[in-house]
């Protein structure tokens, strides 16, 4: 008895890692996706280990060394108009953009998934929820964000709230569509005929089966969230100086475009790379998770 129990716990992990490896291989088949994954990994790394990667405080001013060009001694990416180390600001900025990106996407997902599940599963809730979603869609994203920030004040946390609200309707539509296509499958009916509750069916069976489009959406939405955070900060609605946020850095560097172009170019390139990386990885995930390429249909 005990030996067979032991084998049951071991074998599945083997088969699971096998499908896991297969998935990675399929994902990395596209070279661009690999590049994107490396960029994301680098950003994660710098965000987590920011204090160990920098020697200067990102907000410490030193007017004696202001506007140093990249490659200067002690400041390899130069300094800004107040003599703050650009590398430190860039590294701490990656922390902020990642944090804002992840938290706004997670918040938006929670709201969108719950609304989508309910709208897809309960027919009587479908109309009200989807009309609400349509209403949210009718607002342009930046305008909605400005509204939220005007009401709640210019703080980074409010940017998170604004962006997550704006992510809710798209996510709700994706989840609703998946649930609609899944809820009449026979395995769902089998569950119902066994007497399974709605909660069990929704969260244990339907949600995992619509995970693929949600994962793709979340990855793509990371890119837009990071971009929007920078845009809002650039407009002065998000992070306030001296916070080392990339969009705010570009805004501050605008006045020195001719004398110190690196002040705008460096954070600009950082934003571009990160947004590019998340978009490419999202695209790759979509291909890799495509049911027509899934092992289910290969066998």
């Amino acid at each position: 008895m005990t030996t067979s129990a032991a084998t049951t716990t071991e074998t599945p992990s083997v088969s699971q890692t096998k499908t896991g490896i297969r998935f990675w291989r399929r994902l990395c088949r596209n070279r661009l996706v690999t590049v994107g994954l490396v960029i994301i990994a680098l950003q994660l790394f710098t965000a987590v280990f920011a204090p160990w990667l920098t020697t200067y405080d990102p907000t410490a001013q030193d007017l004696a060394v202001k506007e140093l060009p990249p490659g200067s001694e002690g400041h390899w990416l130069g300094t800004d108009e107040y003599g703050r180390d650009m590398w430190s600001r860039l590294v701490y900025g990656s922390r902020i953009s990642l944090l804002v990106g992840i938290s706004s996407v997670v918040l938006g997902l929670v709201g969108g998934v719950v609304l989508g599940l309910l709208a897809g599963y309960y027919r009587w809730l479908d109309g009200p929820i989807m009309r609400l979603v349509d209403l949210m869609f009718a607002f342009p994203g930046i305008l909605l964000a400005m509204l939220v920030i005007a009401m709640l004040g210019t703080r980074l946390i409010n940017v998170v709230i604004a962006i997550s609200i704006w992510s809710v309707p798209t996510c709700a539509r994706i989840v609703r569509g998946s649930v609609l296509s899944l809820k009449d499958r026979e395995y769902v009916q089998a569950l119902r005929s066994m007497g399974a509750g709605d909660g069990r069916i929704l969260f244990k069976h339907l949600l995992p089966n619509c995970a693929a489009p949600i994962i793709v959406f979340a990855t793509m939405r990371m890119a837009t969230a990071i971009l929007s955070t920078s845009a809002l900060s650039f407009l002065g609605l998000g992070a306030q100086p001296p916070t080392p946020e990339w969009g705010a850095m570009i805004a501050a560097g605008r006045d020195y475009m001719w004398t110190a172009p690196h002040l705008t170019i460096i954070p600009g390139v950082a934003i571009m790379l990160v947004v590019f990386a998340f978009n490419v990885v999202g695209d790759g995930l979509r291909d890799a998770l495509d049911p027509h390429m899934d092992v289910t249909y290969e066998s």
Binding site: R185, E186, Y187, Q189, A190, S193, M194, G195, H205, T296
Partner: peptide
């Protein structure tokens, strides 16, 4: 109230490809 009766009546479905949750062992 139906739950105790659910135990006594079960169903076998037509499509063997749709009747099992593809992500469940």
């Amino acid at each position: 109230k139906l739950k105790p009766y659910r135990r006594k009546m079960q169903m076998v479905f037509q499509d063997p490809f749709a009747s099992l949750n593809p992500r469940q062992r």
